[in-house]
Design a protein around this nucleic acid. Structure first.
Length: 498
RNA sequence: CGGGUAGUAGCUUAGUCCGGUUAAAGUGCUGGUCUGGGGGACCAGAGAUCGGAGGUUCGAAUCCUCUCUACCCGACCA
């Protein structure tokens, strides 16, 4: 039985210090660590395996909706970058810039290198913070006719945003993501694309991350620079702070005009194309961690767990291990036939108790323990990570039971997160209530807003809360702004955010 | 990028204020024996030029200067 609340794993608990809990968990569960470069992380194999599972599913969904993958350069010539003014302005403060292309031995410091002052680039290269510029410059050459449209392309890439304050997965100077960039003949089609991809994100978040999200649109001040409309999925973390988990932008004709991407329509007339872009990043790893994990470590939904099941033998001596391994290997084989990923940990270098803690820390959804008593009774011990409950199951029934439980866990995690989220959406009608809920209860606050940036800014200044989104499914409801008292047609969601 | 705090063995830390033998502990690591149903016990051993670079001094983990990194608070941001 547990000796300490988190069974000696020595994790800071969420109630002690949520932020510290997160930082420790990422490192201790072997997901990622800081590197020698400020703000840049090393994603470790276990963390990368989860990311690969996210990628695989998203990639499948993108392809099912007609998209193809391509790859564009890391560097963007400054002249291209600045072409779409609003976008350039939005990212300017956080761009890394390549100015030289050669190093040389430093004559003043033997054994050291310096930048060769003679190797200055004619034109500086911006390390992409996002790829609209290089992509639209390329699309110009690909699109002449409405027959070339729609152009539906995605790329998996890294991007760099020189962040001042970074956190593993949540905000790093370099991160991995996918960015979809599409071109369409009509405004309606581009709008539909942007909304479709936001729905794809929502579906992915709910079915794979087991993370409930609110779909909505961003206000002008939260909108992507260069977009006419930004759709988003917003999730709520266990500490009551909101996290933007994905965005999809309707770019209008802004980039088409900036990069002169015209096509001839079926009436023989020239027009600018309509564009979208959409992305999710390794930030989803942070969302995943903060949605489900507990004081014992990571809790992974079965649909994303690198190992859905781990088998731990409990034995004295080689003879017992061999007898147990025989049973374990049968189970491994049967589980794999059912498409369930399983790891048999027969290492003799760690004791069972140590392994239990290790796999709990790493969030493996189900653990099977097999010992001599189980051999006698032809049973196994089955332990659930999410509830920390155990049961004994007949060996012959274990595969069916595991399959069922994995499904159940996936659903239970979603339900638990959804209950938490739903119970943390509070409707308020006065600014005092607003502040009180934000301070004590936290979470989303549903309130009327007069639609102006001034009010939004003022509320942010006073409370640190921002408008996370105008929910898609919001009812039209006449009311008065919670801050200014001016008329408002519907409620929006406020929260403190990551 | 501004304000604050901290960097000592793989990790967590003591020592720093007040400079002085061989830099200490827990954990982890290696070997061995006993063990084995929730991070085992005992014995033995290896492991740090004290974040880095300069400086002061007979002598620096300790004092001074610069710098790098992490964390917290702001501004900024997915």
């Amino acid at each position: 039985m547990p000796k300490s609340p988190n069974m000696g794993k020595n994790l800071t608990t969420r109630s002690e210090d949520y932020s510290k809990w997160y930082n420790e968990l990422v490192v201790k569960a072997d997901l990622a660590e800081n590197s020698a470069v400020r703000g840049c992380m090393v994603i470790k194999p276990y963390g990368y395996a989860i990311w690969e599972k996210m990628q695989a599913e998203l990639d499948r969904m993108f392809k099912e909706t007609g998209h193809e993958n391509a790859y564009f350069p890391l560097f963007v010539p400054k002249s291209l970058f600045e072409a779409e003014e609003k976008n350039a302005e939005g990212f300017a403060k956080e761009c890394a810039v390549v100015t030289h292309y050669r190093l040389q031995n430093d004559p003043d410091n033997p054994g050291k290198l310096r930048v060769d002052p003679a190797a200055k680039l004619e034109e500086e290269l911006v390390v992409r913070p996002t790829s609209e510029a290089i992509i639209w410059n390329t699309y110009k050459g690909w699109i002449q006719s409405y027959r070339d449209l729609p152009l539906l392309i995605n790329q998996w890439a890294n991007v760099v945003r020189w962040e001042m304050r970074t956190r593993l997965f949540l905000r790093t100077a370099e991160f991995l993501w996918q960015e979809g960039h599409t071109a369409h003949a009509t405004k309606a089609e581009a709008l539909e694309e942007a909304q479709l991809m936001n729905r794809v994100y929502a579906e992915f978040a709910e079915n794979f991350l087991a993370m409930p999200v609110i779909q909505g649109t961003k206000t002008e001040s939260e909108r992507f620079a260069g977009a006419d409309e930004t759709y988003c999925i917003e999730a709520l973390m266990q500490d009551g702070k909101a996290l933007q988990a994905g965005t999809s932008h309707f770019l209008g004709q802004n980039f088409a005009k900036a990069f002169d991407v015209k096509f001839t329509n079926n009436q023989g007339k020239q027009d600018f194309v309509w564009a979208t872009s959409w992305g999710v990043s390794t930030r989803l790893m942070g969302a995943l961690i903060m949605t489900h994990s507990d004081d014992n470590g990571l809790v992974l939904p079965p649909n994303l767990a690198p190992h859905q099941v781990v088998i731990v033998p409990i034995y004295k001596g080689q003879e017992q291990l061999e007898a147990i391994s025989q049973v374990a290997n049968e189970i491994v084989k049967d589980l794999r036939m059912r498409g369930i990923s399983v790891k048999y940990d027969n290492r003799d270098t760690h004791k069972p108790g140590w392994k239990f803690n290790e796999y709990e820390l790493k969030g493996v959804p189900l653990r099977i323990g097999i010992g001599p008593k189980d051999l006698e009774k032809r049973t196994v011990e089955l332990a659930r990570r999410d509830t920390l409950t155990k049961e004994f199951v007949a060996k012959d029934e274990v595969v069916d039971r595991v399959a069922l439980l994995l499904q159940e866990i996936q659903e239970a995690l979603y339900t638990k997160a959804k209950n938490f989220r739903d119970s943390h959406i509070t409707t308020v009608n006065t600014f005092d209530e607003f502040k009180e809920v934000l301070e004590n209860k936290t979470g989303f606050i549903s309130a009327h807003w007069d639609g102006t940036s001034e009010t939004e800014d003022k509320i942010k200044e006073l409370t640190k809360a921002t408008i996370r989104c105008i929910p898609m499914d919001a009812e039209q409801e006449e009311g008065t702004c919670v801050y200014s008292g001016k008329p408002s047609p519907q409620r929006v969601l406020f929260a403190k955010a990551y």
